[in-house]
Design a protein around this nucleic acid. Structure first.
Lengths: 132, 132
DNA sequence: CATTGACCCTCCAGTAACTGGAAGCCTCAT
DNA sequence: ATGAGGCTTCCAGTTACTGGAGGGTCAATG
């Protein structure tokens, strides 16, 4: 199977597939003409990677997940531990973004948004009120 | 004022200040010895930048905000529009992360996390259930 | 006066995960 | 044989810094 077919079937762009080969996530063979030769298994792996990435796992996480995916003797606690870790990181990001949102929403609400220059948003960002 | 003082007063690391000069956000003069020579105004601007970045504005956003900050004739609607835009982007990110969290939390909960290989997380990521 | 330690300088490289584009084969159908 | 795709490699750019090497500068001390 050529890269285009694999891209269509896995949902992972050809360019990204080449990149994944570069960094050693997948190892397709080569045909005589130099084209990458993929198998069904590669399609599965790439779809797996696509889903893991969509859940926000990093490439390094994916490397681990992929080896667990292939390991018949894996212990589910290994998978769970990684996922819990990742979950925690997601929650941290959410918390940070929510705090930004709160501040920003408040400022936006206070700003008249008219033709005058007075602006609570600029004022909040300005440091003049300090150090004097 | 030298870069170290400015870094302490503004809260922006020296390395980052140099970077901001590189990309044209600030333009300190130079002393005879080649050291950057900063003014109070630079400290203000850098503190301003630090706050804007903490609210998640991109560097390009900051460039705009900084010019509005300096513009006595700005119209607050310009500031407000940018902030609203940014707010929307933050909300999108939050939504995406929350959806990841929901999926992941569900999977984590379903996973036994023991010594057996069976794992709902891996299964969810696997594409075998498709296309057959 | 020489040295030491804290600053300062520039330039180079690396981070994460791709993405776009140029230049150039391969293949199949007309 | 020619043209449209599809494939190849390699280079560069994205975001916003950060770390480090190699090397001047300055103020104070011995």
């Amino acid at each position: 199977m050529n890269i285009g077919d694999v891209a269509r079937q896995s949902g992972v762009p050809a360019k990204t597939i080449r990149y994944y080969e570069d960094i050693g996530l997948i190892r397709p063979n080569r045909s005589e003409n130099g084209y990458r030769a993929f198998t069904e298994n590669h399609v599965h792996k790439l779809a797996f990677l696509g889903r893991a990435r969509a859940l926000g796992f990093t490439i390094e996480d994916c490397r681990t997940l992929l080896s667990l995916y292939e390991d018949e003797n894996r212990e589910s606690m290994q998978v769970k531990a990684g996922a819990e870790d990742h979950l925690r990181q997601i929650e941290e990001k959410i918390a940070k973004l929510q705090s930004m949102r709160a501040t920003l929403a408040e400022l936006v609400e206070k700003c008249a948004g008219d033709h005058r220059p007075d602006c609570p948003i600029i004022e909040d960002l300005s440091p003049e009120r300090l150090a004097k």
